[in-house]
Computed example of a mutant assay.
Amino acid sequence: MQTLTNIDLREDRAANWYVKDETVQVAFATEPGELISREGPNRYQPGDAIVTGATGDRWVVSRGRFDPRYVAVGPNAHGESGPYRNKPVPVLAKEMTHAFAIARSTGGDVLTGKPGDWLMQYAPGDYGITERARFEAVYRPADGPKD
C-alpha cells in the first residue's frame, strides 16, 4: 500500500472538479470519541458533526469545516442535530488505481483506500477518501478553477 504525502491535486492532470449532491443526517458530538468509517478512524471532539450519508456511510466533519459547507434542512436550526444538505462547493477528486493511505490533515487520522476509490482534496492539506459506489451515487462533474 502506498502512503501519499505532500499531494496537491491542483497539479495532477488526472484530477477533476466534482460537487456533492446529498442530504445527510447529522448528530453533533457531546464528548470526544472515535468513529471507524470504511476508510479508517475519524476522531472527533465536542461540537464536531457525526454524519450519516444517504448511502449509510458514516464519517466525521470537524465543526470548523462543517459550518461553512452544510445548511440545515427542515425545522432544525443550524447547529442542531437533524438533516443537512451540503453546499455545492466543488472539490478536486482523483480515482485511484492502487491501494493507498493518506492523513486527513497534517498529524490527522490516516485513512486507507483501495483500487477504484477516490482521493478527495477539499483544500491544500485537507483530504478524504470516497468509496467508488458512494462517489458514483453522490458526486457529479463540476466547473472549477484548475490553477
Rank of each mutant, 00 (worst) to 15 (best):
L35Y: 10
E34Q: 13
Y122P: 03
D117K: 03
A93W: 00
P75W: 12
A123K: 05
N76W: 11
H98G: 10
K87A: 13
S62L: 09
S37E: 09
V91N: 02
T97F: 10
R85N: 13
K20I: 04
R134I: 02
G125N: 05
E11S: 15
A77D: 11
A72G: 10
A14E: 08
E95S: 08
E95G: 11
V19E: 06
N16D: 14
Y139Q: 04
F66T: 08
A77Y: 09
T52S: 10
N6L: 12
T3D: 15
D109W: 06
M1C: 08
W59N: 00
P32N: 09
T55M: 03
K20T: 13
R58K: 08
T106Q: 14
L9H: 05
E95P: 05
E136L: 10
R13W: 13
P115W: 03
V89E: 03
V61G: 08
D21G: 12
E80I: 01
E80T: 08
W17T: 02
D67K: 14
Y122A: 05
G144V: 00
P115V: 01
P83W: 12
A93I: 04
V138F: 04
L9F: 10
P68W: 14
V51G: 01
L92W: 01
T5A: 10
V138Y: 04
R38Y: 10
T106G: 15
G40H: 11
L9Y: 04
N86C: 13
R104A: 06
A103Q: 12
E22R: 10
A101L: 10
V89R: 09
G128C: 03
V71T: 15
T5L: 13
K87I: 14
G40I: 06
A103G: 11
Q2S: 14
D57W: 02
A54P: 04
N76C: 05
F28V: 13
A27Y: 11
E31P: 13
V71H: 15
P141E: 04
E95D: 06
A77L: 09
L111Y: 11
A103L: 13
Y70H: 15
Y84G: 00
W118T: 00
G74Y: 06
G128R: 00
R58E: 05
D147F: 12
D143V: 01
P90K: 06
F100A: 07
D48K: 00
K20A: 08
E22S: 14
D126Q: 08
A93F: 01
G125Q: 04
A101V: 09
E31A: 15
T52R: 06
L111F: 07
G113R: 07
D126E: 01
P75C: 05
Q2P: 14
M1T: 12
P88F: 07
